[in-house]
Amino acid sequence: MAMNTLKDIYLDQLQDLWSANTQSLPVVTELGRAATDKELSEALIAGGNGISDGIAALEKLCADHGIAPNAEHCKGMEGLVKEARAHGLSDDISDPDVRDAAIIPQYQRMVHYALAGYGTLVAFANRLGLDGDAAVLQQCLDQTYGGDRHMTAIAMQGGVNKDAVA
């Protein structure tokens, strides 16, 4: 697709974020199964549910604009997924508390990619006068921010990092 207008970039970014979400979902599920801290595991399951909701929303927006969601492959998320598997699911981590502490930054790196994507898409949709799109994307952005804040709270106030020190 030629990138001649903001709308062209908007549509391309919808597809990129769909690709990012579809790539991150399986590893978030794996991280959730690997986590031993109950609160962390539950947060990752909720994060996976949020990613699934985002995928569905992006699929609908793509369909509304007459484009296939899978026309892009997000290389950025591909790298983040590899890092999450290498550093959050590594066999080199034998202590489950240390693994839990390692999972959090890997998850948050993927989430921060989604935050940037949703935030940009909200701005583009608003500028293009796509109020319905903007509302859907803002809801996805808000949900993603909520998950990120919850993960930060687990790291800072929960027992995960404290347990990993011992």
Rank of each mutant, 00 (worst) to 15 (best):
E30R: 14
E30L: 09
G32S: 08
R33H: 14
A35M: 08
K38F: 07
K38Y: 11
L40Y: 12
L40D: 14
L40S: 12
S41F: 07
A43N: 13
L44N: 09
I45T: 15
A46S: 13
A46K: 05
G47H: 05
N49Q: 15
G50K: 06
G50S: 11
I51F: 03
I51N: 01
I51T: 11
S52R: 11
S52K: 13
D53V: 10
I55M: 13
A57I: 04
A57P: 02
A57K: 05
L61P: 01
L61Y: 01
A63F: 09
H65L: 08
H65P: 06
I67A: 10
A68C: 10
P69H: 03
P69Y: 02
N70C: 10
N70E: 15
A71N: 10
E72H: 14
H73V: 15
C74R: 01
C74W: 03
C74N: 15
G76K: 05
M77D: 02
E78I: 08
E78T: 14
E78P: 09
G79W: 07
L80D: 04
V81G: 02
E83Y: 06
A84S: 14
H87V: 05
L89D: 04
S90A: 15
S90C: 11
D95G: 10
V98N: 12
R99F: 09
D100K: 14
D100I: 11
A102K: 05
I104G: 01
I104R: 02
P105I: 05
Q106T: 12
Y107P: 02
Y107M: 10
Q108N: 12
R109V: 03
H112Q: 14
Y113N: 05
A114M: 08
A114I: 01
L115P: 03
G119A: 04
T120A: 15
T120Y: 06
L121R: 12
V122A: 00
V122M: 00
V122Q: 02
A123Y: 00
F124R: 00
F124C: 04
A125E: 01
G129M: 04
L130F: 11
L130H: 06
L130Y: 06
G132H: 14
V136Y: 02
L137H: 04
L137F: 01
L137Q: 01
Q138Y: 08
D142Y: 01
D142Q: 12
T144A: 10
G147Q: 01
